[in-house]
């Protein structure tokens, strides 16, 4: 059982995106769970439940990693703490 609450999770330490577990407001300081550790993190965008955000600056053409695996690549530069979705990443397979 987790003693502390958290707002978003990162499944694998290789990941460069996190996933929110509730609606999160832009410019808010959130608690991020990375594997078993909890850290503070500053968001830039509003993030809806279950949506993703960048953990660091992701440059155009860089791979997006979730579950420790490639889920696509950035189509533009994505600043740290920004919403990551179909407007700034694309599939490499579909």
């Amino acid at each position: 059982m987790n003693a502390k609450n958290f707002d978003a999770i990162v499944l694998n330490k290789k990941d460069n995106v996190g996933t929110s577990i509730k609606f999160l407001k832009a410019k808010s300081n959130i608690i991020l769970k990375i594997e078993k550790k909890l850290i503070n993190f500053l968001l830039k965008d509003n993030i809806r439940l279950c949506h993703k955000f960048s953990l660091n600056l992701i440059k155009k053409g860089e791979k997006i990693i979730k579950y420790g695996e490639i889920i696509g690549e950035a189509t533009i530069n994505i600043d740290k703490g920004k919403h990551v979705h179909i407007h700034n990443i694309k599939s490499l397979r579909g």
């Binding site: 579950y67 490639i70 889920i71 696509g72 979705h85 179909i86 990443i89 599939s91 579909g94």
Partner: peptide, 24 residues
């Protein structure tokens, strides 16, 4: 184009961005 078909529009609205993400 798989985007819009799979992941479908409901998946995308819910936060899934690519077929790789959905498949994993």
């Amino acid at each position: 184009d798989l985007l819009g078909n799979n992941p479908g529009h409901q998946n995308i609205k819910a936060g899934l961005s690519t077929i790789e993400e959905k498949s994993l």
